[in-house]
């Protein structure tokens, strides 16, 4: 669905932000992109809806070369929610913010009304429908950006640091949405530092460092590789550290607290 072929991107200032990237994202995949600040994660994401075009190489989205497409037409299929909500929000009210994309993509009046209503309710923003987005808290702004993109139902959803400023309940809600989208065959790409959030979803994990992809493998392989973690400035999820300290054994991991519970109850006889 999205294909990077030997993509290099050099910033106007001369910095090489992406260095010969070749990678594919398929339908129905959950992919996490991790790595240090400045590794090139956001630059990579900006190529997915054509906001940036490669200096060298090609990016194809559903078969179309992004240099031949507008950002608007690419966005219809690849919805990106950026890290800084303030750069994304511009409407006078919360409701209009969600409507904007839907109207631009030519949905009928009824569908627009229905989708806006659904999105605001789902993200607990309906009581702010007529409020200015600038009056919202950081966490609420983030949810509004997500609501606005999900409302037009793109095939690929790209979320850049979606958990920043979100409390546990909203993170749980976000995880539910991601799982729901995956069951619908959508592709979800997450850029995140929030290891504890990513771990239970066991995504395919792409590790970036200095503009290159240094690993592309299942989460269970990335987060048990000490030298890779150090190189990418990552730390282990608590459950990985626990499994190692309990000597759970080769290749076996606790992907969530329930598998950990089962393993412990099978082996330990507690007082």
């Amino acid at each position: 669905m999205i294909e990077f072929n030997s993509v290099t991107y050099i910033h106007p200032a001369g910095v090489k932000a992406l260095d010969d990237i070749t990678v594919k994202f398929g339908q129905g995949e959950l992919v996490a992109i991790v790595g240090a600040n400045g590794a090139g994660k956001t630059t990579l994401v900006k190529h997915m809806n054509g906001l940036l075009k490669p200096t060298k190489g090609t990016v194809k989205v559903f078969g179309y070369d992004t240099t031949q497409q507008t950002v608007a037409s690419l966005s219809r299929r690849v919805g990106v929610v950026f890290q800084n909500s303030d750069h994304q929000l511009f409407s006078d009210t919360v409701e209009h913010e969600v409507e904007f994309g839907l109207r631009n993509f030519g949905f009928s009046h009824e569908v627009v009304k229905q989708r806006v209503d659904w999105a605001l309710r789902f993200f607990g923003l309906n009581e702010y429908a007529t409020t200015s987005p600038m009056m919202l808290s950081g966490g609420e702004k983030k949810r509004l950006c997500l609501a606005a993109v999900l409302a037009w139902d793109p095939d690929v959803l790209v979320l850049d640091e979606p958990t920043v400023g979100q409390d546990l309940l909203n993170k749980e809600k976000l995880e539910q949405i991601i799982r729901l989208l995956l069951t619908q065959g959508k592709t979800v790409i997450l850029v995140s530092h929030d290891i504890e959030f990513l771990w239970p979803m066991q995504p395919r994990t792409i590790v970036m460092s200095r503009g290159k992809i240094i690993a592309d493998k299942p989460a269970s392989k990335v987060f048990t590789d000490d030298s890779l973690l150090a190189e990418a400035r990552l730390i282990k999820p608590q459950l990985v550290e626990l499994a190692q300290r309990l000597n759970v054994g080769d290749g076996e991991v606790f992907d969530n607290i329930y598998t950990a519970k089962k393993w412990i109850l099978d082996r330990f006889r507690c007082a």
């Binding site: 240090a36 600040n37 920043v164 400023g165 530092h193 290891i195 400035r233 990552l234 730390i235």
Partner: peptide
């Protein structure tokens, strides 16, 4: 919240 895990630590 904006830092990579090792920088956070």
């Amino acid at each position: 919240s904006l830092l990579d895990p090792l920088s956070a630590l």
